[in-house]
Design a binder for these strands. Sequence first.
DNA 1: ATTTCATATTAGACATAATCTAATTGCTAT
DNA 2: ATAGCAATTAGATTATGTCTAATATGAAAT
Lengths: 150, 150
Amino acid sequence: MDAQGIKQCLEDSGLRCTPQRYSVMSFLMEHAGHPTAAEIFEGVNRLDPRSSRATTYNNLRDLVQAGLVREVAMEGRAARFDAKGAQHHHFICDKCGKVEDIDWYTVPQPGSESLGKRIVRECELIVRGLCTKCVPRRASQNSSRVVSAV
Amino acid sequence: MDAQGIKQCLEDSGLRCTPQRYSVMSFLMEHAGHPTAAEIFEGVNRLDPRSSRATTYNNLRDLVQAGLVREVAMEGRAARFDAKGAQHHHFICDKCGKVEDIDWYTVPQPGSESLGKRIVRECELIVRGLCTKCVPRRASQNSSRVVSAV
DNA sequence: ATTTCATATTAGACATAATCTAATTGCTAT
DNA sequence: ATAGCAATTAGATTATGTCTAATATGAAAT
C-alpha cells in the first residue's frame, strides 16, 4: 500500500495521519513478523521524525482501538502487533515464541443462539506447539502431532 | 476433588505435593473465575502455611508446564490462570476484562495435511466482545452481534 | 535414627513492559 | 493571525514477573 493509501486508511478510521502514527502503521505493514512495541519503536526511529516511546504506545493503542492493528498477548513476553490484512489466526511456538500467521485453517463461527446476550467482536484461534524450526528432527513425522482441540 | 485426589494429581505429573503447591492447585480448583497470580498469592495466604510471591509464581509455572493449569495472557493486564478441567475456550470482555469459560462451542481440529512439520500441542479459541454485564441495554438484541471469525 | 542431597521455599532485589504526567508543539478552522 | 483541540515528548511511575543466594524440607540410603 502506498503512502496515500495509508493516509486514507487512517482517516477513514477517524485517526489523523500524523508522521509518527503513519510511521507505525507503515512499519507494521512492511514487517509482517509480528514485532513487539519495542521493536516498532526502534524501527520507526531509524527514520525521521523521531518518535518517543509514549507516542509509539499511544499510537499502537489508537490503531488497535480503530481495528487497524491486532495485538497478540504473549505469556511472559511483550505483546506483539500486526496490521490486520486478510483475516487470519496465529500459531505461537512454545519454544522460540515466534508467531506465524495461520491462513490454512478457518474457524466456523459460533451460532448466535449460543451467545446469549454477549456481543462478539472477534474470534481468534491460537494454536500452540513447535514451529518447523523448533521441531526435533525425528519428531515431525510421528504420532505426537496430535491436536487437542475441544 | 478431595485432598488425596489433588495430591495424586500432582504426583502423577511428577510434582511433589508441597503445602504451597497444594494450596495453589486447590485454590485454582475452587476458584474457577480465572484469577491473576496476585489474586492467587493473596488467596492462598489467607490460609497457612504462608507462601511467598516467588513460590506462587514458581508453582504456577510448574503447574502450567505440567499441563495441570492453563495460563491466559491478557493484553495489557496480568495473566490469568485456571485449572484445566474439561476442555474449554475463553470469552474475554473488552470492557471489564472478565474471562468466561466457553463450553458452548467446539473447534474442529485442523487436518494434519495443513500443519506441515509443525507439532501442535493445543488449540485455543479466544472470543472477544462484551460480556452480558457490559452489553448496553438496547444493544443485546440488535444486529451488532456479528462474529467476524475467519 | 542419622546422613545426604536434590528439591522447594523465602525475602527482597532486579528487570521488563507499559502507563501516566505535565509541559510543549502542531494542526485546523475560523 | 489566533483560538482551541489533538498529538507529542521525556522521564517518572506503576505493574508484572524473574532472579539470587541463603535456608529449609523431604525422601532414600545407611
